[in-house]
Amino acid sequence: MTADRAGTASALINVARMVGATIGVALLGAIFAFLGEAETAFIVAMSAGGSAQLLGSFIAWCLL
């Protein structure tokens, strides 16, 4: 990456991060709303989010 393109690369990484966070919050909110009962829905939504993070960490570790 050349120095004159570093700002563009940084912006693209930030946009990808923000889009991923937005989609993640929307999916977890949809799971929560779909299940209805607050306590069960919270546990399932947080378990799904935690599982996705662990899977992403494992994939990143394997690709190093």
Results as ranks from 00 to 15, higher is better:
48 A>N: 09
35 L>Q: 08
22 T>L: 15
19 V>N: 00
26 A>G: 07
45 A>C: 07
46 M>A: 14
16 A>S: 05
27 L>A: 14
33 A>K: 10
22 T>R: 07
48 A>Q: 05
26 A>Q: 12
39 E>S: 12
43 I>M: 11
43 I>A: 15
39 E>I: 10
45 A>I: 01
20 G>I: 01
47 S>Y: 01
43 I>D: 09
46 M>H: 01
25 V>N: 09
40 T>R: 11
31 I>L: 14
33 A>T: 11
16 A>K: 06
38 A>Y: 08
31 I>E: 04
36 G>L: 05
24 G>A: 12
27 L>R: 06
31 I>H: 04
38 A>K: 12
44 V>C: 03
42 F>K: 11
22 T>A: 15
41 A>G: 05
47 S>K: 04
32 F>S: 01
46 M>P: 00
38 A>C: 00
37 E>F: 03
23 I>E: 06
21 A>G: 11
37 E>P: 00
30 A>I: 10
18 M>R: 14
48 A>G: 04
36 G>T: 01
28 L>P: 01
26 A>W: 13
40 T>E: 02
27 L>N: 07
23 I>P: 03
43 I>W: 11
33 A>H: 08
17 R>Q: 10
37 E>N: 08
34 F>T: 13
30 A>N: 04
47 S>L: 13
48 A>V: 15
19 V>G: 02
41 A>W: 04
19 V>C: 03
33 A>R: 10
17 R>V: 13
20 G>T: 01
15 V>F: 02
36 G>Y: 04
38 A>W: 12
36 G>K: 05
16 A>Q: 03
32 F>K: 09
47 S>N: 04
24 G>W: 05
22 T>H: 06
17 R>D: 12
27 L>M: 14
39 E>W: 09
35 L>D: 02
39 E>A: 13
36 G>V: 01
24 G>K: 04
33 A>G: 00
23 I>N: 02
29 G>A: 15
27 L>T: 14
19 V>A: 14
20 G>Y: 03
46 M>N: 08
30 A>K: 09
27 L>F: 13
